[in-house]
């Protein structure tokens, strides 16, 4: 069955239904699982970084933020892009270098964006999104808007200068920005404890005199609740804060990485707290849905993603003129996020 893809804003609005948040978490998981297969078939080339295990954070961002708030995130951004509302067609199209991609296939996996749902182009340089989020918040503050910026970076990114400079600026200017550190235990092939002398990354906040908190990143409700408080605080003009979200990278760092460097048992221990399973139990326990209903959702997501893969595979690559589009900025372009 071929469905007309919804617009990203409609997909975002749909998340007000708790069953839709479950559907979206599954969509991200199944989408990411597909990427590995497409790689093996040679339909995706270069590199790609998937986010299985981090779906709770992705969806919590989408349900907590207003659609006119903005997010900066990393190359591990498929999940956040889908959660915020980008269609699987525009994300997969970009990953496969097809004209249906969000920027017509010239960007690839690491360069997703959709200003309609507040996603600035995802950052391929570690740490770069941190001061840029502070800058977005600077614009909101200067113009007196009650919008909020959220920077999502990895645990590894807390060791780069841009992270510290961004936090300090935000602190002295009291900017409406929330710094989310997605601590998935690894930066590339290095475990956090080999690169960073502290285990509690929210402690970084103390140097910049801002509140810092760590939250269980596998539990959607816990992440949403904490993020909601930090965002509300920023929106109320109380300044920036840091939220460490403790997740786990179920897959390797990128494409072929089998992550053999992980200690035995670590992955299984985290998988026993899979955010999708936890969510499923929570919905059933609360009586929000029956197991059958959730099974049905999972199956319909699988079918929908299979359709997206089929459609995208049949979509052409861009022609040479695409190489030359948007290199220069025309004088009349309006600033991103402005109507």
């Amino acid at each position: 069955m071929t469905m007309t893809p919804l617009h990203s804003r409609e997909r975002r609005a749909a998340l007000s239904d708790p069953l839709e948040t479950y559907r979206r978490m599954n969509e991200i998981r199944i989408f990411e699982d597909q990427i590995a297969g497409l790689f093996a078939e040679g339909l995706v080339h270069g590199t790609t970084h998937t986010c299985q295990g981090q779906e709770a954070l992705d969806v919590a961002l989408a349900t907590t933020l207003r659609v006119d708030d903005v997010v900066t995130c990393t190359y591990r951004g498929h999940g956040i892009a889908l959660a915020l509302g980008m269609t699987p067609d525009s994300v997969l199209g970009e990953i496969m270098g097809r004209v249906s991609g969000c920027i017509g296939g010239v960007g690839g996996s690491m360069h997703l964006s959709d200003l309609d749902v507040g996603l600035l182009p995802t950052f391929a340089i570690v740490g770069a999104g941190v001061p840029v989020a502070a800058g977005a918040a600077l614009a909101f503050q200067t113009r007196g808007e009650d919008r909020v910026a959220v920077s999502v970076c990895g645990d590894g990114a807390t060791n780069i200068g841009a992270f510290h400079e961004g936090l300090n600026l935000a602190a002295i200017w009291k900017l409406p920005v929330v710094f989310v550190v997605d601590n998935n235990v690894y930066g590339e092939y290095s475990r956090i404890d080999t690169t960073t002398p502290i285990t509690d990354l929210s402690a970084r906040a103390a140097s910049y005199a801002m509140p810092g908190e760590s939250v269980d990143g596998m539990d959607l409700d816990a992440v949403s609740e904490a993020l909601g408080r930090h965002v509300a605080r920023a929106r109320a003009g109380e300044g920036p804060s840091l939220l460490e979200v403790r997740t786990y990278r179920f897959a390797g760092h990128s494409r072929a990485d089998q992550a053999a460097y992980r200690p035995a048992g670590e992955l299984d221990a985290w998988k026993s707290r899979d955010p999708l399973t936890l969510r499923r139990s929570a919905l059933i326990d609360a009586g929000t849905a029956t197991a059958d209903q959730l099974d049905e959702i999972e199956q319909s997501v699988r079918d929908a993603i299979a359709d997206v893969v089929e459609r995208t595979s049949a979509t052409p690559e861009p022609d040479a003129s695409a190489m030359f589009r948007n290199v220069w900025t025309p004088a009349a372009a309006s600033p991103p996020g402005q109507p």
Partner: peptide
Amino acid sequence: CPDAPVPYSPSLESRH
């Protein structure tokens, strides 16, 4: 190369 960033799509990257 042309005065344009390196595009991702394989057919474009190979021409760049």
